[in-house]
Nucleic acid binder design. Sequence first.
DNA 1: GCCAGGTGGTTGCGGTCTCAACGACCCGCC
DNA 2: GGCGGGTCGTTGAGACCGCAACCACCTGGC
Lengths: 184, 184
Amino acid sequence: MTRSPATTAEPPPDRVGLRARDPRLAAWRALLQAHAMLLRRLDEELRAENDLSLAEYETLLHLAESPDRQLRMNTLADQVLLSRSGVTRLVDRLESAGLVRRQQCATDHRGSWAVLTTPGLERLRAASRTHLRGIDEHFMSVVAPDDLLAIGRSMGAVADRVASGPGQDVEPPGPDQPDTSGRS
Amino acid sequence: MTRSPATTAEPPPDRVGLRARDPRLAAWRALLQAHAMLLRRLDEELRAENDLSLAEYETLLHLAESPDRQLRMNTLADQVLLSRSGVTRLVDRLESAGLVRRQQCATDHRGSWAVLTTPGLERLRAASRTHLRGIDEHFMSVVAPDDLLAIGRSMGAVADRVASGPGQDVEPPGPDQPDTSGRS
DNA sequence: GCCAGGTGGTTGCGGTCTCAACGACCCGCC
DNA sequence: GGCGGGTCGTTGAGACCGCAACCACCTGGC
């Protein structure tokens, strides 16, 4: 209300002229919200019951699933979607907790392996009970099996698309796009 | 406790005894990964083209969609899924950028409104072009329409479940009632 | 009117992340 | 053999967030 002064040609006074109400966006919004809530919850549970953050858990998990239970720092960064420096400090923490051990790479003296220790593996096992229960309780048990398939399929495609995309254009550079905005 | 006795189908000693390879987890993992990659990308695009973080964008958006383009700090915190203090500082930033203005609440002198300014609205409009394009490019265009529905439905259910859930059990006592519905 | 308890927002502190810069190291080419 | 360019991991600085403590304020009971 009190929309007194005649603003410029304000199109449809829907909300703000943003196409924010596009119904297709409902899925996107639901995804955002559910994901945020869900991860927060799982992280809380993990911290409360196992004193591990989600990132730490994921790190231990990836190590456990790797040959010889070890990974190069670099690879680890890719897998847990963290920056190099992020992984350095994460492994610092895990190492000082005794869950992981660093070992210099024999063939490449620049790098090192992060190796899962036995206590690390045990801690992971304990945490996985918490975590898998949480996933089951908050996610699996709420989603219909068919929808689960749809999610897996879609999200795989999304990941591929995003991965392929910084510079690479999946769609050839707009030929002669007749300008769409008075860009700044 | 390393339960060896196997009344339960403690499957094969696959990797670490974690049921990490449960095929149903594929959807979960894909979701995690795709979401992380996608948000990172969208955030980058928004920062690069509009000098706004995703959280800042969401804040402006929620304000724009609210009556009189204003919200109580408290409400804002709930909507953008941030802590109270997080919102305080976020609004600090937006305010010093001139995109939002604080206004003391007339009826309750404890609280204040965060009000979207005109420059804020314009900035939001510009940013929404970037953001909606990104969502389209990286998400909408990759997901089949039916899958989009499945995602919306599932994620809505997950959000409800998580929201209902710290102490409250959605499924109280009835363990003796073998769910006959089968699915929801 | 006054006080106890609750609520709204801010601030201090600590934790975790990223980016940029760095040193150590590897490799191919001269 | 030596050198330039790239790669691997770490470090310093800065950004952002949450928790807990805090003050200002509101509300209900007396």
